[in-house]
Amino acid sequence: MIRHIVMFEFAKEAKGKTAIENAVIAKDLLLELTQKLDFIRRMEVGINASEAADTNYTLCLTCDFDSIEDLNRYAVHPEHLRVGEFIGDVRISRACVDYEL
Rank of each mutant, 00 (worst) to 15 (best):
L81I: 06
L81R: 13
C96T: 02
E51N: 09
L61A: 09
G84A: 09
E79P: 03
I2L: 13
F8C: 07
A23S: 11
T18S: 15
V6W: 03
E9S: 14
H77S: 05
R94D: 07
E32Y: 01
F86Y: 15
V97R: 05
I40T: 00
G88S: 11
F86M: 09
N48A: 14
L71V: 00
L33C: 04
G46E: 11
R91V: 03
F39L: 04
F8W: 14
P78R: 13
C96K: 09
L30N: 08
A14F: 02
E9R: 12
A26H: 08
Y57C: 11
G16E: 08
C63M: 13
E85V: 01
R3A: 10
K17P: 05
Y74N: 03
S50M: 10
I25A: 08
G88K: 11
N22R: 05
D28V: 04
V90G: 10
T62Q: 10
G84F: 01
A49S: 14
N72L: 07
T62G: 09
A23I: 01
P78Y: 11
K12S: 15
E13T: 12
Y57V: 00
L33I: 00
I25R: 10
E9T: 09
D38W: 02
R3T: 08
C96F: 00
G46L: 07
N56K: 09
S93V: 00
C60I: 08
I87T: 03
D28W: 03
C60H: 07
L30T: 02
M7P: 04
A49M: 11
E79N: 12
D89E: 15
T62P: 00
D98K: 02
H80V: 00
K12M: 05
E79G: 03
L71G: 02
C60G: 14
I87M: 06
R91A: 12
K36F: 03
F65N: 06
C63F: 00
A23N: 10
M1A: 13
L37H: 10
I68E: 15
I20E: 13
R94E: 12
